[in-house]
Simulated scan of single mutants.
Amino acid sequence: MTLSYAGNEDASWLQDVAVEKLELIIDQIEEDTRLLEDGEHVSGPSAQEYRDRVTQSAPFAGRVVTGVRNAERLLEQADPAVHHGQGMTCVWRAATAACRKAKLALGLPGADAPDETDCRSTCANLAYTDRDITDRDITELQQELVHLQADAADPLAPQPRRDRAAAQAAQHLTIIERHRDSATEDGRGIA
Rank of each mutant, 00 (worst) to 15 (best):
G39Y: 00
V82C: 14
L74W: 12
I26C: 06
A94S: 13
T55P: 04
R100V: 14
E30T: 06
R100G: 07
A18I: 04
R120P: 05
D27W: 02
E31F: 02
L35H: 00
E40D: 08
A58G: 12
Q77F: 03
L3W: 00
G62S: 09
W13L: 06
E30F: 08
Y50A: 04
G107E: 07
F60K: 02
A61D: 10
E23V: 02
E40V: 12
D38N: 10
G7Q: 04
G110A: 08
A95C: 07
V64E: 13
R34N: 11
G85T: 11
D118E: 12
P109I: 04
L74D: 09
T2N: 10
K103Q: 09
L74G: 11
Q28V: 07
A97L: 05
T66Y: 13
V82H: 05
R93Y: 09
A127W: 00
F60A: 11
V42C: 02
V19C: 06
Q77P: 04
G110H: 03
S43Q: 01
Q86A: 15
A71G: 14
V54H: 02
G85A: 13
K101T: 02
W13I: 10
V91P: 09
R73I: 14
G67Q: 11
S12R: 07
E72L: 15
Q56L: 13
A113V: 11
L3I: 15
L126W: 02
T89I: 02
V65Q: 03
H84E: 12
N125V: 00
D79T: 14
W13M: 09
P45E: 01
A102P: 02
R100Q: 03
R53V: 09
T33K: 02
L35R: 14
F60D: 10
C99E: 07
R63Q: 14
A98P: 00
